[in-house]
């Protein structure tokens, strides 16, 4: 038996396809004691890790001048929805170089993908 076939990952229907460079909005279920609420996090996808049940992705945003990165497990039941806000066009799979850039530069690097798709 192969390890990749052991745990079935329930594919969340609400998660569309997205790529590094895309800006996405994640809605997350948060459990505080008894209460349950939703939290959103919007940012640029700087990496995707495809590895079966352990697949994850990392979002980066700049909040009040400070870079914030957050990694989410792709198959987490706490992930409610994922919405692609803007499709980006980048030339790398891992966008770690955005960390060294100013937010203005970073925005320029992540161009819109819409133009290419029209062509």
């Amino acid at each position: 038996m192969d390890i990749s076939s052991v745990v079935e990952t329930k594919v969340n229907e609400d998660i569309p396809e997205f790529r590094p460079g895309d800006t996405i909005k994640v809605k997350l279920k948060i459990i505080e004691g008894e209460r349950e609420r939703s939290q959103t996090f919007e940012g640029v996808v700087i990496r995707k890790r495809p590895s079966g049940a352990g697949a994850s992705f990392t979002l980066r945003k700049v909040f009040q001048g400070i870079g914030v990165e957050r990694t989410f497990p792709l198959h987490s039941p706490r992930l409610e929805t994922v919405e692609v806000v803007r499709k980006g066009r980048v030339r790398r799979a891992k966008l770690y170089y955005l960390r060294e850039l100013s937010s203005k530069m970073a925005k320029a690097k992540v161009k819109s993908r819409a133009k290419d798709e029209l062509r």
Binding site: I3, V6, V7, P77
Partner: peptide
């Protein structure tokens, strides 16, 4: 022993597990 992987619990936390045939 098949290998290790992870599963999600109902609460949403991850458990590291070993798969055994």
């Amino acid at each position: 022993k098949i290998g290790m992987t992870q599963v999600f619990t109902e609460g949403g936390t991850v458990k590291a597990v070993t798969a055994i045939e």
